[in-house]
């Protein structure tokens, strides 16, 4: 189950949806494992089963059906909403997370498959109120318009720079070409990705 959130007194659309969702899931828990007919195979589900996810350095225990994607587990169960659900088909990049150091589309991976992996989202980049140097660069270079693609672009840029701290323009373009921005602010996203150190560590209130 998701860890208890401290100080969450208000009632929001999100917490309402979460409550409704949790009821549905609880009703689906019938027992974790079943053995297939005639075969000595250990099958999990289709009912919800316990899994553990390591997200942003914290372990979360939750129960999900095998069909729940990593994206939906993060957003609707763990309230980690940096990864966005847009196309849900691995075509837009808004759901990008860093998994064991590589970018992946969290909409196109099952939560149950992500066990044992180190998962990082945009939330994990910020330390308190101090933005990551890449997040800071997105502000400084105006790397966003509506902002919906931004967490995906930021995580993709962070994954690139952790592997290749001084990418060429061409390398950066290639590394970021799995993300789409409908507003079309690509030149500034690229500038941000190429200039991450511009104002690292500046406090934002």
């Amino acid at each position: 189950m998701a860890p208890k959130k401290k100080d969450e007194p208000g009632f929001s659309r999100r917490s309402f949806l979460k409550t409704v969702g949790a009821g549905g899931v609880a009703a689906g828990v019938l027992g974790p494992a079943s053995t297939a007919e005639g075969q000595n195979v250990k099958a999990i589900g289709p009912a919800a089963s316990p899994i553990q996810l390591n997200v942003n350095g914290k372990f979360h225990r939750l129960e999900v059906e095998p069909r729940v994607t990593l994206l939906d587990a993060l957003r609707t169960r763990l309230n980690i909403t940096g990864p966005k659900r847009v196309c849900d088909r691995g075509s837009c990049g808004a759901c990008t997370v860093i998994l064991d150091g590589r970018t992946v589309y969290s909409c196109s991976m099952l939560a149950i498959e992500a066990q044992g992996k180190v998962i990082r989202t945009a939330e994990g980049l910020t330390e308190g109120t101090v933005l990551h140097s890449v997040q800071r660069a997105f502000c400084d270079h105006d790397g966003l318009m509506c902002g919906f693609c931004t967490p995906g672009f930021v995580t993709a840029a962070v994954a690139l720079l952790e592997k290749n701290p001084k990418p060429t323009r061409q390398e950066a373009r290639k590394a970021l070409d799995g993300n789409i921005c409908r507003c079309g602010t690509y030149p500034r996203v690229l500038e941000a990705a190429l200039n991450p150190k511009s104002a690292a560590g500046v406090k934002r209130g």
């Binding site: 195979v41 250990k42 999990i44 589900g45 289709p46 059906e65 095998p66 069909r67 099952l110 149950i112």
Partner: peptide, 9 residues
């Protein structure tokens, strides 16, 4: 998607 069982081979 339709629900399914999962085997980790």
């Amino acid at each position: 998607m339709k629900s399914f069982a999962y085997v980790n081979a």
